[in-house]
């Protein structure tokens, strides 16, 4: 018992197509990742902060995978988890090369607090001088990820609770 020939052929064709697409996409991803790495880091063996900063100034690379999910839901860019608002692109390009956007999105701070985090990353984590982009980045962070006053302890998030009946 086999499938009719044309269905088999169709399956085969489809499978070859998958493979071709996967291979091509991968090639593009690898190429783009390489270019971005080069653009961001320069030659890792002769890396200078000035050169890196210049590279960043010249052209703002997109730091997460360009094949990433570009969909936006409820104002959130799904691939990075970041809120889409003024300054999103520069934040994405500057920050997500070294860490996930989800690390940003789960934190809250004032403009000064965010600046302190940038200084810490510059001091200890190899973040370059951000030049004129810094103000845009801080504006975005302060506007979109500002602290919420919750007192000494917040209420349980009653809205988020999934109520269920507990059997005896």
């Amino acid at each position: 018992m086999g499938k009719p020939n044309d269905t088999q052929d169709y399956d085969k064709l489809l499978r070859s197509l998958y493979r071709a697409i996967i291979f091509l996409s991968s090639f593009i991803v690898v190429l783009a990742t390489g270019l971005i790495y080069y653009g961001l880091m320069g030659n890792p063996f002769s890396q200078s902060r000035e050169a890196t900063a210049a590279a960043v100034k010249r052209e703002m690379p997109v730091a997460d995978l360009p094949s990433a999910d570009e969909r936006i839901a409820d104002g959130i860019h799904l691939a990075t988890g970041l809120r889409v608002a003024e300054g999103f692109e520069v934040v994405r390009a500057t920050c997500t090369g070294c860490h996930s956007g989800k690390l940003i999105a789960q934190n809250r701070a004032t403009r000064d607090g965010w600046q302190e985090m940038i200084r810490w990353m510059q001091r200890t984590q190899g973040l370059w001088e951000l030049g004129k982009n810094e103000a845009d980045i801080l504006d975005y962070l302060a506007a979109n990820y500002a602290p919420v006053e919750i007192g000494r302890r917040a209420n349980l998030d009653v809205e988020a609770i999934e109520w269920y009946i507990l059997g005896e």
């Binding site: 789960q106 934190n107 701070a109 607090g113 985090m117 602290p147 919750i150 302890r153």
Partner: peptide, 11 residues
């Protein structure tokens, strides 16, 4: 996650 003012890092 519960600290106020918030502290940086994984929440």
């Amino acid at each position: 996650k519960e600290f106020n003012p918030p502290a940086k890092g994984n929440q």
